[in-house]
Design a protein around this nucleic acid. Structure first.
Length: 324
DNA sequence: ACTATTTGACCTAA
DNA sequence: TTAGGTCAAATAGT
């Protein structure tokens, strides 16, 4: 991996980035929420446009401060249009419409579809609770891992086919600390499956809400602190709290650690209904805080903090860090 | 009937 | 050759 983008920054430069990254973007996001709550639809669209401009300014500034340098990691995730992609949803139909045996077709269709992801950029965080990340996930596999006590569970975005969203994640109970779950995210959501920001702000007047991020000069490590009463995070973490009472059941190797809250998340009468929400303004594991430049593919810098992961610059083309 | 999960098979990178 | 990521038929749930 190339050198970290922040490693050799002067402290003043880092402070500027922190200011833009945390206070600037978060404040803009919260401002939008507050205004949106008190204006009509037309005004709301206007506010939306304005905030996007503000966010773009932040992103541009960050890009300039970063010197425009980013790591690039070639993605090995199958892309839309790849040989295996087009047939995924209609494989049944195509199989029935031909004279070939189902087994032969199955082998043919699946060839070239499997990619190891060792070098693919990923974000990992550990959590004692199965907090929902705001996206709809669908389990597609479970594997017993060599020398691991607990199985690994594989999830893809619910909108893999209808919106070509390539985000996936793996959830596995940590052997050394069975009370913790390790979730590894691959790719970023390109689907419009985000939660309404208003649902995550319990009290817009809470001006103390903040997340502090600092970069350690000597080690290059990130340090993050969050206030436990942070409105955004607190809401985020309590949203799914009621569905995390089955963690003890995870002692069973076959237990699916994310099925339960996934079901809750896709329920139409539950707070989290990912299918029809367009916006968010919270930090979301797997999502990005520091928007720098939409042309950036990725710069692998992430950190874990008690279940919340903050990442500095990890972009799919055309995706900004903050979605508003 | 429709959607989600389970699980053995398939496939590929290492 | 094998570990592990993914597929898809079977099954379960609503």
């Amino acid at each position: 991996m190339n050198s970290s983008w922040h490693e050799n920054f002067p402290s003043s430069r880092k402070k500027a980035i922190d200011e833009l990254l945390i206070r600037g973007q978060e404040s803009a996001a919260q401002l939008k929420l507050v205004i949106n709550k008190s204006v009509g639809f037309d005004e709301s669209m206007f506010v939306e446009d304005l905030v996007k401009k503000v966010m773009n300014s932040f992103n541009s500034s960050l890009y300039i401060l970063n010197g425009g340098e980013f790591d690039e990691v070639a993605s090995q995730i199958p892309r839309v249009g790849s040989p295996c992609w087009d047939d995924r949803k209609t494989s049944k139909d195509s199989g029935e419409s031909t004279g070939k045996s189902a087994a032969a077709l199955k082998v043919k269709d699946r060839r070239g579809c499997y990619k190891r992801r060792k070098s693919v950029h990923s974000r990992t965080y550990d959590s004692s609770t199965l907090t929902d990340d705001g996206h709809g996930w669908r389990k597609y596999g479970q594997k017993v891992i060599l020398n691991a006590k607990y199985p690994r569970n594989y999830f893809r975005c619910t909108h893999k086919y209808d919106q070509q969203c390539q985000a996936t994640k793996q959830v596995q109970k940590i052997q050394e600390e069975p009370q913790l779950f390790r979730t590894t995210y691959y790719g970023h959501h390109t689907c419009k499956n985000l939660l309404k920001a208003s649902q995550f702000v319990s009290d817009p007047s809470d001006h103390d809400s903040s997340i502090l991020i600092s970069f350690n000069d000597s080690t290059g490590e990130h340090q993050v602190s969050k206030k436990p009463d942070n409105s955004l995070l607190a809401t985020y973490q309590t949203v799914k709290q009621e569905c995390c009472n089955r963690e003890d059941d995870m002692s069973m190797p076959s237990y699916d650690p994310a099925t339960y809250y996934n079901n809750q998340g896709s329920s139409s009468d539950y707070l989290l209904s990912p299918a029809d929400h367009d916006y968010m303004s919270r930090f979301d594991s797997g999502d990005v805080i520091s928007g720098v430049n939409s042309s950036c593919t990725t710069s692998s810098h992430s950190l874990d903090m008690d279940g919340i992961m903050i990442e500095s610059g990890d972009f799919d083309d055309g995706v900004f860090g903050f979605e508003l």
